[in-house]
Nucleic acid binder design. Structure first.
Length: 1013
RNA sequence: GGGCCCGUAGCUUAGACCGGCUGGAGCGCCCGGCUGAUAACCGGGAGGUCCGGAGUUCAAAUCUCCGCGGGCCCA
């Protein structure tokens, strides 16, 4: 399967320095990756649930050609989250096989380039055999590169047992399907006008052409063609005929007229008459003054059947049908002259008209787009180069009437970038128009994400029902398995066994069905005993990938495969461009063979943009090697950035986007983990594997939140919604970090195994372990880190992995009343912080009293007893009183003693905070200042959390009094085993820290680590 | 030339299907705070013509139409 790939360039920025936020993530991912490799976690995960419910999936095989770019990270990430989730839910995945799309023009072009070749002949000179070998080697090289970055981003597939579309057994399955189509009359040869690349010397399918439209400038020429059936002696009359492809003029066989359109004749140079559509007159003569006089008006219908002199008389034999005017519906008034040049071999409309009226064809080009000697003037010239010579010749003969240039979009070859031509050729088609209704009906059963594609872009394309040009005049592809008998009938071959029968003996060992081997095999027609000759084509590589759902199992040849005729895939995910690519070929093949939809759910993502929101493209130099991105930013940050974005549209995926997206959430989470671990090292409280039943309202609140998060995440992942899952988890990480942990920290430092402390450990460990499970499908590395560090298996030998565990199924009862009360508390905290700011009292300074009034009686109950301590601690107030509206309305709050918040119009509580600390509280606040400075110094000295110290203090004034009064508390807070307090100054300055002004007093201190007891 | 999607603060976005409080949030920025998570944490602030215009309505980010811009696709 192919996609709009652009080669990667060198990395745009250096790897992160040791202090960069992503460096801790990168170190973590390295550690995890080593663990996975050592314990073969991916292999064991893929082998899970051999008897579980089946979840069907097929990896859309990337083209193993060209280096991947950043955009290719997206489909990997968007497939992987769902597959991991399903595995954790106990599903059996069918299949996890990696797959590589091996055939086709891109590979051939790459080899041609590497040899410096310019045309197809050089391949024949080199030999198809060696050429195929080169192609195979190239495919293997690129598959390797793709596998590496796919594994690095954590996309776990079975890379040890991949399917290659070039594997003989895969191709045999493709042959089987082609024969089925042939038998059903859905695979037929025809002579049709198809887009053709003269350099690659092969037709292309519409979905390939679609990738190559580009603005270009072509010549715009208007010819005057003399009517030859005018009355003798009358005025000479010319048809004005317009074209942008002068090179097709030697092949002109007719002129088309719109029978319902209005035409005019005007008098031109030398008194001759010129005919063109009325609507075209103003285009050729924009100013009214210069516009010639109209001498006659005619309906198009009256112009039909006239004869004219062709632009190159004698080039091609005249017949009664040729060089006449015909009515045609494709003639438009919008551009040109309303008289259309018809060259049946070079236009779809032209060809159909030619068929209808019997014009025949004249194609003077060879297969590489060069003129043959049939047109001596330009013999040997490339078709585009011939334009100029032909125009000059027409000019010399006075046939060229006007000449300018014309800007329009025109298709170019998506691989070699040269202009395509439309050309009548022998081509094999899949007759999709015959099964159009079935295609639509099957598409109707698919769930599309985003939904609009179903009846929009994709549905419209299917509804057009265009036949699929399948054959390619190339070498490296699945050969079309159809042979001709000279007696005039055909044999389609659907297996190697059939081939062997026609061969009249066993096939060579390790038979390779590619060209040239397949054509070196002598086959004999069983009826006529004549040698069979194969149709010389290979097939569109998109047919290979579209066959992957069954061909990856070598179905129907291999026995006991899990493929089932009636079972669509449950899930596929690729980029938006696959609506014309793989999604389409899957639908056609599945409908033609099995008459059922190819998949149930399809996730279709947009393209990645750079940090400026620009499309990534080679010419802008903003494409990046995905491996470099992963090594610079980390796999999980990249994955989460994708999940958190609006990935069904195009979105930014540059370094900045990753840093501000997924990385942010992960550093916060890893900081929480680091907090947990560094404390756990001291206390060694066993982690809670089962849900704890905590008493602390803060813990009960967090578990209630967790219960909600588990349910929401599960539901989101079940419905393929990575965005909802990841944003739910992101918000929860914030809640843990900024409220639960913030408020719970003191509990972790309590002396001994207190109930409060153990409760905090148990709650946090349970939450982190559960979170690890929830995060496993989305951020597999981080999830593993959580699992290992919290369950304290710590990457040990034989440790189990979170990816071998089931998805969290715990559903604790939610306490909605508590959740509501807690959000009221959070709102209150915000209000009071503002009041403190207003009062100019810093948070470290304790205040006497907080009064909250205007509450509903129920709220007082809910918030009151259990949550008041949270407010006291968070806001550093000694007393909190909750009052109902009734009670609070009578109190007065003089502004010298209180700062007051009045309820807003929309309601909310009124709040009053006492303004000044008492002397006692002031001293307590000072003691906190001292403690803070001691802690800061401890940290600077890099002491361990549990190290005990000897502390010498020199303090004056209020500070001395505060130290005196709170000596014991200071010692306890700072783990001081030996405290010496003095006034004045230290005798020796060594190791002394000094603060000249702590609330007006000087403080000096010295810390020495105390000997271990 | 035609079709589909998107457009809300510098960035990522909620709200839109089903019209109704002052358009929420996170990041970034500025100011301040906190400090045994420290490139973490907390408060405040600046920053929005909800792409523009018209219509429907008592009321429009939300519904309708016409534009503009971006993306994708078709011819």
């Amino acid at each position: 399967m192919s996609s709009s790939a652009a080669p990667a360039s060198a990395p745009r920025s250096a790897p992160p320095g040791p202090g960069a936020p992503q460096s801790q993530v990168l170190a973590m991912e390295r550690r995890v990756a080593e663990f996975w490799a050592r314990e073969d976690i991916p292999g064991r995960a893929l082998a899970l649930h051999p008897n579980g419910p089946i979840f069907r999936f097929t990896e859309g095989p990337p083209t193993a050609n060209g280096k991947p770019h950043v955009g290719h990270l997206m489909p990997r990430a968007l497939k992987d989250f769902e597959l991991r989730y399903r595995r954790m839910k106990g599903d059996r995945l069918i299949s996890s096989m990696a797959g590589w799309d091996c055939h086709g023009l891109p590979v051939e072009v790459e080899i041609e380039k590497s040899h410096g070749w310019t045309n197809k002949k050089q391949i024949l000179e080199y030999g198809i055999g060696p050429f195929a070998q080169d192609c195979r080697k190239s495919v293997m090289k690129y598959a390797d590169i793709w596998q590496q970055f796919s594994e690095r981003i954590g996309f776990w597939l079975d890379y040890a047992h991949p399917y290659f579309t070039m594997d003989p057994w895969f191709m045999e399955s493709v042959w089987w399907s082609l024969k089925e189509l042939y038998t059903k009359g859905l695979l037929e040869k025809g002579h049709y006008v198809v887009p053709y690349c003269p350099r690659c010397e092969t037709p292309e399918a519409t979905h390939e052409v679609a990738q190559g439209y580009r603005d270009t400038t072509d010549p715009s020429v208007t010819l005057r063609l003399r009517l030859t059936d005018g009355p003798a002696g009358g005025r000479t009359t010319y048809l004005l005929v317009w074209t942008t492809t002068p090179w097709t003029l030697p092949s002109n066989l007719a002129v088309a007229v719109g029978s319902e359109m209005d035409y005019v004749a005007f008098e031109g140079e030398g008194g001759d008459e010129y005919l063109l559509a009325e609507s075209a007159l103003a285009r050729y003569f924009p100013s009214e003054e210069g516009r010639p006089k109209v001498v006659r008006r005619e309906k198009g219908s009256s112009l039909v059947g006239r004869t004219y002199e062709p632009p190159f008389p004698g080039m091609v034999g005249a017949t009664p049908q040729r060089f006449r005017t015909y009515a045609a519906t494709f003639v438009t008034a919008e551009e040109g002259t309303g008289l259309v040049h018809v060259a049946p071999s070079f236009g779809v409309d032209d060809y159909q008209l030619g068929e209808k009226v019997g014009l025949g064809v004249f194609d003077p080009l060879d297969s590489s787009g060069r003129f043959t000697s049939q047109v001596p003037l330009v013999a040997g010239k490339w078709f585009k180069e011939a334009d100029k010579l032909l125009m000059e010749e027409l000019h010399a003969r006075g046939v060229l009437w006007r000449r300018s240039t014309y800007k329009h979009t025109y298709p170019f070859c998506w691989r070699c970038d040269r202009p395509l031509m439309y050309r009548a050729l022998d081509t094999w088609f899949v007759r999709t128009h015959k099964i159009r209704e079935k295609l639509l009906a099957n598409n109707a059963q698919v769930t599309w994400d985003p939904a609009h594609l179903k009846d929009g872009r994709f549905g419209n394309f299917v509804a057009e029902g265009k036949d699929w040009a399948l054959s390619r005049n190339r070498y490296w592809g699945t050969p079309l398995p159809i042979w001709n008998c000279p007696k005039g009938h055909q044999v389609a071959v659907g297996s190697f066994e059939e081939l062997s029968k026609l061969h009249g003996g066993p096939l060579p060992t390790s038979f390779d069905p590619h060209r040239p081997t397949v054509d070196e095999l002598s086959l004999t027609c069983p009826e006529h005993r004549e040698p069979l000759v194969r149709e010389p084509y290979v097939i569109d590589t998109w047919y290979d990938s579209g066959s992957a759902p069954f061909a990856q199992f070598h179905w129907p040849f291999a026995k006991g495969t899990p493929f089932e005729v009636d079972a669509p895939l449950d899930f596929v995910a690729e980029a938006i461009d696959q609506t014309r690519g793989w999604f389409y070929t899957l639908l056609v093949i599945s409908t033609a063979l099995f008459d059922r939809p190819p998949f149930r759910h399809v996730l279709c993502h947009g393209h990645g943009l750079d940090d400026e929101g620009k499309k990534m493209s080679k010419s802008k130099g903003n494409v990046d090697d995905p491996m470099q991105v992963l090594e610079r930013m980390g796999a999980d940050p990249t994955r989460l950035t994708i999940y958190l974005s609006s990935y069904t549209e195009s979105f930014r995926l540059g370094d900045l986007a990753i840093r501000q997206g997924g990385l942010r959430m992960l550093t916060t989470l890893l900081n929480v983990l680091e907090f947990y671990r560094s404390n756990w090292e001291v206390d060694r409280v066993p982690p809670a594997v089962e849900a704890p039943a905590p008493k602390d309202p803060l813990d009960r609140w967090l578990l209630s939140r967790l219960s909600d998060v588990v349910a929401t995440t599960d539901q989101a992942l079940l419905s393929f919604d990575a965005r909802r899952a990841s944003s739910t988890l992101e918000a929860f990480v914030q809640e843990i970090s900024t409220w639960w942990l913030r408020r719970s920290r003191p509990r972790f430092w309590e002396e001994g195994p207190s109930e409060r402390k153990v409760g905090a450990y148990r709650t946090l460990s349970f939450v982190l372990l559960t979170l690890g499970g929830l995060l496993a499908p989305l951020a597999p590395y981080t999830a593993e880190e959580l699992h290992q560090k919290v369950s304290s298996t710590d990457f040990g030998k034989g440790a189990s992995s979170v990816h071998l565990e089931p998805f969290p199924s715990w559903r604790g009862a939610r306490d909605l009343a508590l959740e509501t009360a807690m959000s009221d508390v959070l709102a209150l905290v915000e209000t009071v912080r503002r009041l403190r700011m207003e009062a100019g009292v810093r948070a470290r300074m304790p205040l006497e009293e907080l009064l909250v009034g205007g509450l509903a009686p129920g709220t007082v109950e809910a918030m009151g007893p259990s949550l008041v301590p949270l407010l006291q601690e968070e806001l550093n107030v000694k007393r909190v009183e909750m009052m109902t509206a009734e009670r609070s309305s009578t109190r007065e709050f003089p502004s010298d003693r209180w700062v007051v918040h009045r309820p807003t119009e929309s309601g909310g509580p009124s709040v009053a905070l006492s303004r000044k600390p008492s002397r006692e509280l002031f001293l307590e606040g000072l003691a906190r200042e001292v403690v803070r400075r001691v802690q800061m110094t401890r940290k600077e000295l890099r002491l361990a959390i549990s190290d005990r110290i000897r502390l010498e203090l020199w303090a004056e004034g209020d500070l001395a009094e505060a130290v005196q009064a709170h000596q014991e508390w200071i010692s306890k807070e700072c783990l001081v085993s030996d405290l010496a307090v003095a006034s004045g100054s230290p005798s020796s300055p060594e190791g002394v820290r000094s603060w000249p002004d702590v609330e007006g007093s000087k403080l000096e201190l010295r810390i020495v680590k105390a000997p271990n007891v």
